[in-house]
Every structure is written in structure tokens, then in C-alpha cells.
Amino acid sequence: MIKYLLVFVAIIGIGYIFLPFVMEFSTPTKLNPLATSYVQGSVNELNMPNVVTAIVVTYRGLDTLGEVTVLFLATAGVGFLLKRKHDMVNHRRKCSEILCTGASLLTPLIVLFGVYIFAHGHLSPGGGFQGGVVIASGFLLLVMANISFHFSHNLIHFSESISGFIYVLLGLAGLVLLGANSFLDPRYLPAGKWLDIVSTGAVPIIYSIIGIKGGSELCSVIDSLQHGGTEL
């Protein structure tokens, strides 16, 4: 009983901390100067319609690099905690004809849709993280349909490490080609035409690399969680 009372007091206290924030908040009617300069810079300097992509890849690119590192560490932790057995016998039922055919017909289309999303990330809503997640859900469909399909773990780990390496190399290319203060600056490739798929410098390449990296990390998480935990 005393525990419920203490929880109640804690919730009331946290709500009281939030109260002045709610009281003083009013929805702004115009953009603040920092966001205005980001919008103008994205349109004029980088030639990119999607401002969110401009911030994620270019202006706050170092944040994204750190985020990819955190994702890699969490995936490594999951793989370390749930080691998989090597002589794993498959107890599950074989898939039926309709499920097998449907899943193997749909998976390439889902992967193609994921590639479309991250290749058009600089023009329309979407980008590397969303495309990677769509690719991982295609892989999930194969795993859940239980098709006898051997996804190579070496391939997942190889694409994971090589895409992280290429991401850092593309950032360093900006530092080498454009001089100081330009780590992850994509303007060493030509800016191209407005609303063209090959435009805005190196942004499509960087976002595709982020997409491949995120997709392979999430595939690895799903694979560990599906098989794991059977041995100590």
C-alpha cells in the first residue's frame, strides 16, 4: 500500500515539474532564425528540396555518424548476449505452397521498394533509415514464412562493416577535397539540376550507405532474436 502511495506522489511530482513548461508554451506562428537559415541554405547551397535530409546528412552529419555507432553497439550487444547454436535443428512446420510462393514473390519487390525509398531520400519524404527498415521487414517476411533459405551471416556482417567504413571515408573525402571545417560536406560532387535524382552532390550516395548499414544491422538483430537464447 505504501508503495502505491509513493508511486502516486512521484507521478504528481513529475507532472508538477512539467506544469510551467505547459503553461508558458504557445504554438509559434513563424519560424525561428536557425531553422530559417537551414531552409535557405538547403535550397540555395545544397540544391536539395527535402530540408530534413539536408539536416540529417549534412548540417548535423556528425550526429548521424554517432547514431550509426550507437546502433552498431546495440546490435553487437544483442548478438553477444544471444549466441546462436550451430547445430540448430528446425522444429517448425514446413511452409505451405501458397505461403512459400507468395513470400518468395513479395520479398524482391519489398527490397526494391526499400531501395527506391532511400535512393529518393533527398527529393521526397523518406531516406536511409526508412529504406533500411523496409528491407529488414522483407527479410522478416522470409524468416516468418520459414522458407529453407540460408542467409549468409558473413554477408550481413561484411555489408555492415564495409558500409560503415565507406561512410567515414565519404566524410573524410569532403575534408580532403574542400579543406578544413568540411567533414561530411557533400559539395565535392556537382550540385546538378533541381529535382534530378543525380544531384545535390554526394548526398544520395551517403544516404544509400546509411540505408544499407541500417538494414543489415536490423536484419542481424532479427536473426539473433529469432535463433538466440538456446545455449548459455
Binding site: L31, N32, A35, Y38, V52, I55, D63, T64, E67, F129
Partner: peptide
């Protein structure tokens, strides 16, 4: 404002 969108995305 695009900055909170980018933060929430990651």
C-alpha cells in the same frame, strides 16, 4: 521547423 523532425528521426 525541420530540426526536431531530424532529431526524432534518429
Amino acid at each position: 521547423d525541420p530540426v526536431p523532425s531530424a532529431l526524432v528521426l534518429t
